[in-house]
Amino acid sequence: MEIKATINGDEIVKNINPNKRLVDFLRDDMNLKSVKEGCSEGECGACTVLLDKKAVTSCTLFAGQIDGCEITTVEGLEKTGELELIMKSFSKNGAIQCGFCTPGMIMSAKALFYKNSNPSKDEIIKAIEGNLCRCTGYNKIVKSIEEVRDGIEHE
């Protein structure tokens, strides 16, 4: 089927297999390797992307469903410069260890900021409740997001 969608700012018209999961479409057809697969059931959040600016797990959607929608991954945030502050905050604060959960974690944080530019610590914690991390214990991730909220810039 032919779909029309905006992926990371680019409008694409593409013939795709609509039955593929969105995660497979993004990784295999669009070569967006930031989208990671960790559990295939929407529980770990590694495959989180933005669907019309809302965080969704891309393993729980069919690719055909994004027709007419806007999809954003960290590759897209990098293009617009929106990744800069948050990625540096994560790096500086030691919020990235193995890094496998990181892109998904960043997308959840980004979705939160789209909805609420001044979230409380509890709101930050809730925004990443669906993003599992086994390395960091979340503390440094939460701190990184708080610093982005507070506009703290890192070299």
């Binding site: 929407g42 529980e43 959040g45 989180t48 669907l51 809302k54 965080a55 969704v56 797990t57 729980t60 959607l61 959840s108 979705a111 809730k126 925004a127 990443i128 409740e129 669906g130 993003n131």
Partner: peptide, 9 residues
Amino acid sequence: IGSTQIRNL
């Protein structure tokens, strides 16, 4: 229900 990501879908 579920996580933020799931509630969005």
